[in-house]
Design a protein around this nucleic acid. Structure first.
Lengths: 239, 239
DNA sequence: GAGTGGTCTAGACCACTTT
DNA sequence: AAGTGGTCTAGACCACTCA
């Protein structure tokens, strides 16, 4: 049967939804082989490219598994990855409908401690820019930022004053592009963090550590700590 | 200049990498408009569909921003979205090269407390299956699982014994398909959690809460707590 | 060998937005 | 009005893998 050509939107999207319905409803069950593209193309009354795009997107999302000659099957559930998305802080706050505010706590050039030096990949006596700042949502502390910027990778940072704006946005504009690594975890707030975030010492913090590279060099390492309660949600399966 | 047609792989992938290089290197900077598809098509010596696919993928990843008439620009948000991947626990442990072990702590049918009832969307006196279990990596407690299964959505759970294997895998095989929601946060371990995870009370836990649906109904709500130290990492920018 | 998905083309029309 | 991306087609060839 044709894929309700009355519905709005591109054909590939309608086909995608239709197939997703058949999978969700259990009409096509995990492991089952579904009809080949050349057949669905007639079923839906469209070209093979259009069917292909719908199937490819579903396969990219892990709903389907495709192999040449073997055909297309509904993926076994366990194989599917669940992704969640962490947005940039300003966006996140803005989407909650809050006012965003930034305060610089400290900025200094110094030789980083060994564990930071490892992460930056910098020399033994090489100085880096250390920045500590707090991000507020509706005047409540929301994120503590503890950042190191490599001065060999980003020499412009040496003369930059971060009183007026957060280093993150500046780096994004200044450093052309980069790869990144993230680590997520939880730690207990120490005295300094607790004071800055207006919470009790030892309270649990959600921590995101991020390193970004320009080419082969780490340009910045930042630890973002979020106070106390649950922080982020994100739905994302098969849609 | 043609996109090194000597390199292997599909043309759209080569074009994608080439453009990514131009962005990474700063040759095309954030905010800058790049040439239109019909021009790149000649630059790369291929059809417009092929260029389009490369650009579309980069736009989907957030590297580029595209608007009709206005053209294609390098995205300003250098702080791409981060995607965190939640694997199935057994796989995760296996990938760390550890032995995996599972222990059921408690399983009982009972009426859930109000906050759980809200999340399950179940009736006031409706019973649900409550399961508490611990997952070990190399005999060290690695994850505490506190799960509620709706018996109206998954009646088979009433007669299921989770002594031998974790409910997660069983549910995945049993319940055909679902949407999911995740909430990530950090909390301090209470006495019970601390005992089961062999850590101190009040130590910080990374907590992932997940609800999954079958159609309109929540079939399970689970809270996964990971002890202390950093737990998960996942890199993901522009591939 | 044959059937499947993967890619690619040359062209077309449409939708949107800026001028 | 014009230029941009978004989609779609009909057909083609290739790559892979199962029988």
């Amino acid at each position: 049967m044709p894929a309700s050509p009355s519905r709005p939107g591109p054909a590939y999207a309608r086909i995608r939804e239709e197939i997703l319905q058949w999978v969700r409803s259990g009409h096509w069950r995990p492991g089952q082989t579904i009809p080949p593209e050349r057949e669905l193309m007639e079923t839906f009354g469209c070209s093979r490219m259009t069917v292909h795009r719908a199937l490819r997107e579903l396969a990219d999302e892990g709903v389907l598994e495709r192999r040449r000659r073997a055909g297309t099957r509904v993926a076994m559930q366990g194989g599917r990855n669940m992704l969640f998305e962490v947005r940039q802080i300003e966006r996140h706050v803005a989407e909650m409908g809050c006012d965003y505010r930034y305060r610089l706590v400290r900025q200094e050039r110094r030789v980083p401690p060994p564990e930071i030096r490892d992460r930056l990949g910098s020399g033994a006596r090489e100085k880096a820019m250390h920045v500590i700042a707090v991000h507020y949502a509706n005047d409540a502390p929301f994120q503590l930022e503890d950042r190191w910027i490599s001065l060999s990778a980003v020499p412009e940072a040496a003369n930059r004053d971060f009183t007026t704006g957060p280093p993150g946005s500046w780096l994004i504009e200044t450093v052309p592009w980069s790869d990144a690594e993230h680590v997520v975890g939880a730690t207990n707030a120490d005295k300094a963090a607790a004071d800055l975030l207006a919470i009790s010492e030892h309270e649990a913090l959600l921590v995101i550590e991020r390193r970004t590279w320009t080419g082969d060099r780490v340009n910045t390492f930042v630890r973002l700590s979020h106070p106390g309660r649950f922080y982020r949600l994100r739905t994302r399966i098969g849609v």
